[in-house]
Design a protein around this nucleic acid. Structure first.
Length: 262
DNA sequence: TGTGATGTTGAATG
DNA sequence: GCATTCAACATCAC
């Protein structure tokens, strides 16, 4: 689930429920999701501190502690946050939980355990160590074009690469290719330069729209990927049947022919 | 019951 | 050296 719009929503949820609250304890039901530090050390570092703000880059969420250090919450494939007051309301696949001084809890649920939590002493250093690119919602057209012109390979791999643009995942990349009518297998070097601005614009439009309406799943527009991205569906021309194959290592849906292959 | 899944990393392959 | 593919991670839904 978590691509940029979902993590954007998690950030709002985190801010609404956790900012200003003092941490009483952290409980790790599955310590595996905590990287490079023991649960005891992690807890000792943030105990009695409160969260002052949070920062998001792509799919990475960095709550900031009042002492200036950060933690990282990455949601993997199935990560989710849940705030509750009664321990009985803990989600089924909760892997760790912040217990606040005021008696409330913020649980991190992650069925498949691909998510991760880290202690980040220096945010800038961490960001550069993983080489993460600019946020997909914020990147300028000029910067996007610069990345495009120095990259190689196909457009799907390009848009999926978090070091180039941070935040897009498999579904949103398919949606961008669909809306720009570009076959995801198209090699960047063959796509006309004038398409760069269009891809950048569509990327932003799609993400901004998703961010706006995500809390209301029922409001999703009909033509979005959850409508067309499935076996047997037809392109807007009513004739082209959907194709499914692996592109850049991920299951990819596209309308061969209707989406132009450069 | 076998298959595949919205992510990331690193190794293997070409 | 580069791009691409694959396996691994752990679990569950279909």
């Amino acid at each position: 689930m978590p691509e940029l719009p979902e993590v954007f929503t998690f950030q709002k949820y985190f801010d609404d429920h956790a900012l200003g609250k003092k941490v009483k304890a952290c409980h790790f039901h599955r310590p595996k999701i905590l990287k490079e530090i023991s649960p005891e050390s992690f807890t000792a570092k943030i105990k009695d501190l409160s969260f002052g703000s949070s920062y998001r880059r792509g799919k990475y969420l960095f709550p900031k502690l009042e002492d200036g250090h950060h933690i990282l919450i990455h949601f993997g494939m199935t990560g989710y946050l849940k705030y509750y007051s009664n321990p009985e309301d803990a989600p089924k696949y909760e892997r760790m939980v912040f217990e606040f001084k005021d008696g409330n809890y913020l649980g991190f649920e992650d069925m498949r355990l691909f998510g991760q939590i880290r202690y980040i002493p220096d945010l800038e250093e961490y960001l550069s160590s993983i080489g993460i690119g600019e946020d997909a919602l914020l990147i300028s057209e000029a910067d996007f074009a610069e990345q495009w012109l120095k990259a190689s390979g196909n457009i799907k791999a390009f848009l999926m690469n978090q070091k180039i643009v941070a935040g897009l995942g498999n579904l949103y990349v398919d949606e961008i290719c669909f809306q720009t009518k570009i076959d995801p297998r198209s090699m960047l070097k063959n796509i006309p330069k004038k398409k760069i601005a269009e891809v950048h614009k569509k990327m932003k439009t799609i993400l901004e729209y998703a961010v706006d309406i995500l809390p209301n799943y029922t409001d999703y527009p009909e033509n979005w990927f959850w409508e067309w991205r499935k076996d047997g569906s037809l392109a807007p021309d009513g004739k082209t049947t959907i194709s499914k194959s692996k592109v850049a290592g991920r299951t990819t849906y596209y309308f061969e022919g209707w989406q132009k292959r450069y």
